[in-house]
Computed example of a mutant assay.
Amino acid sequence: MKVKIKKWTTVATWKWLANDDNCGICRMPFESCCPDCRLPGDGCPLVWGKCSHCFHMHCIVKWIQSQQAQQQCPMCRQTWNFKE
């Protein structure tokens, strides 16, 4: 018995490779997006600090801007520097 395939439909999923499942600031899953964005992906990427903590880009930028004098990681309180 042979089967002939007339149509093939594929589905793909993606996942950020982060050390945690949720953003430490907004608590939204990394597969989702930050509260400011409508769709996950390139518009709302993840960023890592030199301390290895990961956040939505928009979340950490807001956090840093709100911490005028001390720009620290919200998780470990080390000085925040973006990982190159």
Rank of each mutant, 00 (worst) to 15 (best):
G49R: 06
K6F: 01
M75I: 15
Q67R: 13
C59R: 02
A69N: 09
G41I: 07
F30G: 05
V11K: 12
P35M: 06
L17S: 02
R27F: 14
C33P: 09
C76D: 12
K4I: 14
E31F: 07
S32E: 13
D20W: 09
K4S: 09
C34H: 01
M28A: 13
Q68W: 00
C73S: 04
P29Y: 15
M1K: 12
I25Q: 07
C34V: 07
G43M: 00
R27Q: 13
N22Y: 15
C59F: 03
W8R: 14
N19S: 11
K4W: 02
C54Q: 08
F55P: 03
Q70V: 04
C26D: 07
C26I: 12
D20Y: 08
S32Q: 10
T9D: 09
C23Q: 12
A12T: 11
C44L: 11
S32D: 15
A12M: 12
K83V: 00
W16L: 05
K2E: 06
W80E: 04
W80M: 07
S66H: 00
L17T: 08
C26Q: 02
D20Q: 13
C73T: 03
C23Y: 08
Q70M: 00
Q68E: 04
I5H: 01
N81C: 11
C44F: 01
P74T: 04
